[in-house]
């Protein structure tokens, strides 16, 4: 089966170019040079039809950038995004437009993601009208239909975004994406800005829509406990690279990468109420100047000399399980002993 979305060696570098004054200062020997941020560094990922993939990582690890590249909002520096096996960059004309519409994005901030000057009917109805999903006479019914699907009262369609609550706004954003009949949704922290009581409602809406419209999701979040509920598979990113990818149950039962272990140890759980939480040692390093070798080595409890020099490769261990760590290739028994000590409260 061809995956809906496949990402090959996808890389995004942001370069801050020097202005004229900076270039002159550089020529004169000042310690100023172009700054390059490796936001996403050679990521490979494939997502099958109907799957819900959770993408988890600390803020600044490149998960949003990866999501935006998949959604076609940001151009990639290197690598390719394949939709149904076809490179989206190679498509042209109507095919390119169809590919762009097939992948839609749900944004984090329900305030900033809706144009404050447009009415709900304009927000939802603009793209279907422009792209010919409906005509002027059918537009009103089309909008009503979309609003009902996302749980909004169609009688509110004359209103402006500021007249809605956060949860309702997020529904408007989902409706806007659904109106162009996408097959793949990138949800970038789509429920992080909502009240906890509303979060569950919106999550349920996502799951209903998935069944109803045969959708596939990439669910970006910094919160493992949210992703645990809805994702079939979880991908963990650290500083622009994928460190581990596994089925949700497998990942929670037996995390392999030291970073995943550290993340899981911080998820609050009812059965471990009395334990002390120990933050991962150190800060996330600057992506301007990432550590050599394995990006996680300065914070890793199991660091070895090889970690500082060689970049670990993402290796397939079992079906649906990939880990990028030197420990697994050298001595897998050893980490279990180590981690038993370091994980105990």
């Amino acid at each position: 089966m061809t995956p809906v979305i496949e990402v090959r060696d996808l890389t995004k570098r942001f370069t801050k170019r020097l202005d004229l004054a900076g270039r002159i200062a550089h020529r004169l020997g000042a310690n100023i040079h172009e700054e390059v941020v490796h936001a996403v560094d050679g990521v490979n990922l494939s997502i099958n039809r109907g799957e819900v993939v959770g993408l988890v990582g600390e803020s600044g690890c490149g998960k949003s950038t990866l999501g935006r590249m998949i959604a076609g909002i940001l151009p990639q520096t290197e690598g390719s995004v394949l939709l149904d096996g076809k490179d989206t960059a190679s498509l042209a004309g109507p095919e390119s437009k169809a590919a762009a519409l097939a992948v839609q994005m749900i944004f984090q901030d329900p305030f900033a993601s809706l144009n404050p000057r447009l009415r709900v009917e304009q927000i939802i109805g603009e793209a279907p009208l422009v792209h010919g999903y409906t005509d002027r006479s059918g537009l009103s019914d089309y909008i009503d239909d979309v609003m009902l699907k996302v749980g909004l009262d169609p009688s509110l369609k004359q209103r402006y975004p500021h007249q809605f609550s956060g949860g309702q706004r997020q529904r408007i954003g989902i409706g806007r994406a659904l109106a162009v009949k996408p097959r793949f949704l990138v949800c970038d922290e789509a429920i992080a800005a909502l009240d906890v009581s509303i979060q569950a409602q919106v999550l349920n809406l996502f799951m209903d829509l998935r069944e109803q419209f045969d959708l596939t999701y990439l669910f970006i979040s910094h919160d493992l406990s949210v992703v645990e509920h809805i994702a079939d598979r979880i991908v963990i990113m650290y500083l622009g690279r994928v460190v581990e990818s596994a089925n949700t149950e497998a990942l929670f039962a037996d995390p392999q990468h030291p970073y995943t272990r550290a993340l899981l140890a911080e998820v609050p759980r009812l059965d471990q109420r009395k334990r002390n939480f120990t933050p991962i040692a150190g800060e996330i390093p600057s992506p301007l100047n990432p550590p050599s070798g394995c990006h996680f080595h300065p914070r890793c409890p199991h660091v070895m000399p090889v970690c500082k020099t060689e970049v670990p490769v993402l290796e397939k261990h079992q079906a649906f399980r990939e880990v990028s760590c030197h420990l697994d290739t050298t001595d897998s028994h050893d980490i279990n002993n180590h981690s038993a000590q370091s994980d105990s409260p």
Binding site: G72, A100, Q104, M105, F107, A112
Partner: peptide, 12 residues
């Protein structure tokens, strides 16, 4: 702002 990103994502 994100609403402009959303509009770009909708291939406008």
């Amino acid at each position: 702002k994100e609403y402009v990103e959303a509009a770009r994502c909708l291939a406008l």
